[in-house]
Design a protein around this nucleic acid. Structure first.
Length: 506
RNA sequence: GCUCCGGUGGUGUAGCCCGGCCAAGCAUUAGGGGCUCUCAACCCCUCGACCCGGGUUCAAAUCCCGGCCGGAGCACCA
């Protein structure tokens, strides 16, 4: 060892070359496209997605859906969809259908769906057991006082009442003898716990006079998330739970239930926080915006909902690749639209047909020719056939105002796949059809569309609108993602004979 | 304030557990060039990072200590 280190780097290298040249060759490393293995896997895996039905799914939530799906597919097992609708104040009834639709679009395979509002009797059952065990209490102390005591590490008087009395109170809660906020079911933990967030936590509350979209007024005692989640995670036999690290303290809280009941704990993995700059994800904001007409709906192209992305032609597979490469690290990350777009382009570029879309159009006459024939490939490399143009005198075409203004009068340029022209005052002069001439003179080639085109407007993700004309061939691709040349990838739809597009990315 | 979790280029990630193949890989972005009848794709090139300070060691992105910075939670929401 000492001998080796006494040599210079160059000497060491030479010596190594003699002994084992293969060690010097660097392996070309490929981009990692796989997720890390899950820890502690014994055979099949049981995992879950647990969205609350407050709206359709958005990009942020697609992360947990994709990752769970990937792991269940890798190891085999069961993926549960558990709809967490225990807060009747924050439910969008349509979301019960929207969420499975969104998951289906994402390609996430759900094996079984459970809805928490079906399971209240189960929660009540465990609640009673816990009271019998003396591990929970029902307090009638007002919320703020109770919280203040907790912060000081002090018990409220109710905490130490005997189980019989607690059970009596529990029955009174269920019977409706208390009104909203007058009594709360609390799980005992450790009042001295250094983390105040972990000390005694509320597990059931009373909500009267609010109709739950699925169970109506059947229940007035609603479980809070930590209780119902822990019970269900256990009852469903989960082996691994993926959740955002904002749930870290909830995991610690739930551990008390596992300990009290002696349940086996799943493996928890907490992944980092994702910030999405200038992306609208908050369902409450979206709901508001739809209501006041600011957004056209849940699929408004400005939004970060999966439905909006789908409408713009973002492929579910691109979203999947994105989240797989981000992985499960506990670091907070910033979402990168660029990276998502890159994955999407990878998928879409080989299959998207090419068309001309002229936004902010200028209509110009081509002088000096009787008729013109054009032929442009629908795809530059794949064999998808051609779109053809036959123009008869008088010939008018549309080009983008930006192009028109940046071309000088007298300048020689080409209308792609049609012919060469010279810009004159207010019209174009036909200048042959020699492509080599364009190349030789390094002249510009711009796109155009015939006078007989369809109106087309394209909604951009930033909320702006581009309108103009698209060549009528584009109607053939209605519903699909196309690339408007020199514009970008856009998903187009036919509406009243016109085209409406939603821009994906360049 | 208290509790917990993190810090690799603009962004994401690999490497960190088990120190030396790392003068740090990959992807994306940006800039440049080539190719192309698109400002797409493709090919080539360039810029760009181990939070800071100590320590251990022949050797630290990797181990230890301290600091700094960032984030999350502290709801009768999920």
């Amino acid at each position: 060892m000492e001998e080796v280190n006494s040599l210079s780097i160059e000497q060491q290298r030479r010596k190594l070359e003699d002994l084992a040249p293969e060690l010097l060759k660097r392996k070309k490393k490929e981009e990692k496209k796989e997720l890390e293995d899950l820890p502690d896997v014994r055979g099949e895996v049981r995992m879950r997605l647990a969205p609350s039905p407050s709206g359709p799914m958005h990009l942020g939530q697609s992360r947990m859906a994709i990752l769970n799906d990937e792991y269940v597919k890798r190891y085999g097992g069961v993926l549960f969809l558990r709809i967490e609708d225990t807060n009747p104040l924050n439910i969008l009834p349509e979301a019960y259908d929207m969420i499975p639709e969104d998951l289906d679009w994402l390609g996430v395979k759900i094996h079984r769906t459970v809805i928490q509002s079906d399971r209240f009797p189960i929660y009540y059952d465990y609640a009673r057991k816990l009271l019998e065990m003396g591990k929970a209490y029902i307090t009638t102390v007002p919320a703020d006082e109770w919280r203040a005591m907790k912060l000081k590490g002090l018990p409220v008087p109710d905490r130490d009442l005997p189980p019989e009395e607690q059970l009596e109170r529990w029955d009174k809660m269920l019977n409706g003898d208390y009104n909203d906020g007058e009594a709360v079911y609390v799980v005992k933990t450790d009042l001295q716990h250094p983390n105040p967030a972990i000390r005694d936590w509320a597990a059931f509350r009373i909500i009267k006079n609010v109709e739950h979209p699925r169970v109506g007024n059947k229940y007035i005692v609603y479980p809070l998330m930590n209780f119902s989640v822990a019970v269900d995670d256990h009852k469903l036999g989960l082996t691994h739970v993926l959740r955002g690290k904002d749930h870290l303290n909830n995991t610690y809280r739930q551990m008390y239930l596992y300990d009290y009941f002696g349940w086996r704990k799943p493996v928890y993995i907490h992944y980092g926080w994702v910030t999405m700059k200038n992306t609208i994800l908050k369902t409450s904001l979206i709901k508001e915006g739809i209501k006041n007409g600011e957004f056209s709906g849940w699929d408004d192209p400005r939004l970060g909902t999966l439905r909006a992305l789908a409408k713009r032609g973002i492929q579910p597979e691109a979203i999947r690749r994105y989240w797989i490469q981000v992985g499960l690290k506990e670091v907070d990350i910033e979402f990168s639209w660029d990276n998502l777009y890159a994955y999407n382009r990878e998928i879409i570029d080989p299959i998207a047909k090419r068309y001309f879309f002229v936004w902010d159009p200028v209509r110009l006459k081509i002088e000096g020719v009787k008729s013109l024939h054009g032929r442009a490939p629908l795809h530059p490399s794949a064999d998808m056939g051609y779109r053809e143009y036959h123009l008869e005198s008088p010939i008018f075409v549309n080009i983008c105002r930006d192009d028109y203004e940046s071309i000088k009068t007298g300048e020689f340029f080409r209308l792609k796949d049609l012919c060469n022209v010279i810009k004159r005052d207010g019209y174009l002069e036909y200048a042959g059809n020699d492509l080599q001439e364009i190349k030789k003179r390094n002249a510009r080639i711009i796109h155009w569309c015939p006078n007989e085109s369809v109106e087309c407007r394209v909604y951009m993700p930033d909320g702006t609108l581009k309108s103009g004309y698209a060549e009528s061939h584009a109607l053939d691709s209605a519903g699909k993602v196309v690339q408007f040349e020199r514009f970008g990838f856009t998903r187009i739809f036919k509406e009243n004979g016109k085209l409406v597009g939603y821009f994906a990315h360049r």
